[in-house]
């Protein structure tokens, strides 16, 4: 009995709260909006707890790797050292601008992320090279369209060859927008469907239950 209650309670809560949160989108009355806002605010402490849990899990995993001397355990030592260092400097000297924590973030994390971001340019080039090989009719149409759009976006082409600029504008404005909107309609329907399946307990994924 207890197990059944434990199994069903999350679904009952999901049903009640799911219907309430869907309805509040259409009801602006404070009697509905205030509890909805309060529930959204509950996410903040929950999120903090979840992040703590995730960090704990991450640290535990790397500690296990080091203790068991698993393959590439050296990376785990670096991760754990960095984690402890950042927590230590953050707790001792604070995290505000100008502190060691802030400087480490600014001079280590930010450049690393910027480096990863800048790599995108090369990845875009290599992906484009593969995509634009005119092997099939579809790929050829894609190639021609891409060339027209790229040329049309060059400022000088607008003066030198107005038809290309117009063709580029047409491709972006009409076929591209139409396709995007079609996909967005499908995505919206799919999202509503997933939401309804979850609220009605047909889909139990969100609670970690298998199908």
């Amino acid at each position: 009995m207890k197990e059944r209650l434990g199994y069903r309670l999350p679904f009952v809560l999901l049903l009640i709260l799911g219907i309430f949160m869907a309805a509040q989108y259409y009801i602006p009355h404070p009697m509905v909006q205030k509890p909805a806002e309060m529930m959204i605010q509950w996410k903040q402490p929950l999120n903090a707890f979840i992040i703590f849990l995730a960090l704990f899990g991450l640290a535990a995993m790397h500690i296990r790797k080091v203790i068991r001397r698993q393959r590439r355990w050296g990376y785990s030592v670096i991760t754990l050292t960095s984690m402890v260092l950042m927590i230590f400097v953050g707790m001792v000297w604070g995290t505000r601008h100008g502190t060691i924590f802030s400087d480490l973030f600014k001079h280590v994390i930010t450049p690393i992320e910027a480096t990863m971001f800048s790599l995108l340019a090369f990845f875009v080039a290599s992906a484009a090279f593969r995509a634009f090989r005119a092997r099939t009719v579809g790929a050829t149409v894609l190639l021609v369209s891409a060339v027209v759009v790229i040329l049309g976006l060059i400022p000088a082409v607008e003066d030198l060859c107005p038809p290309i600029a117009r063709a580029s504008d047409f491709l972006l404005k009409y076929p591209n927008t139409a396709a995007k909107r079609a996909i967005m309609i499908g995505v919206a329907l799919g999202a509503i469907s997933v939401a309804m399946k979850t609220i009605l307990g047909i889909d139990k994924t969100i609670l970690g239950r298998n199908r």
């Binding site: 996909i183 967005m184 499908g186 995505v187 329907l189 799919g190 999202a191 469907s193 997933v194 309804m196 399946k197 047909i202 889909d203 994924t205 199908r211």
Partner: peptide
């Protein structure tokens, strides 16, 4: 593409109710 992701999630579930949502 787009909604196929949601449809696939329903299809992999052999439950006819889930499939009917597609």
């Amino acid at each position: 593409i787009g909604e196929e992701l949601f449809a696939a999630a329903a299809i992999v579930d052999n439950d006819p109710i889930s499939r009917s949502t597609v």
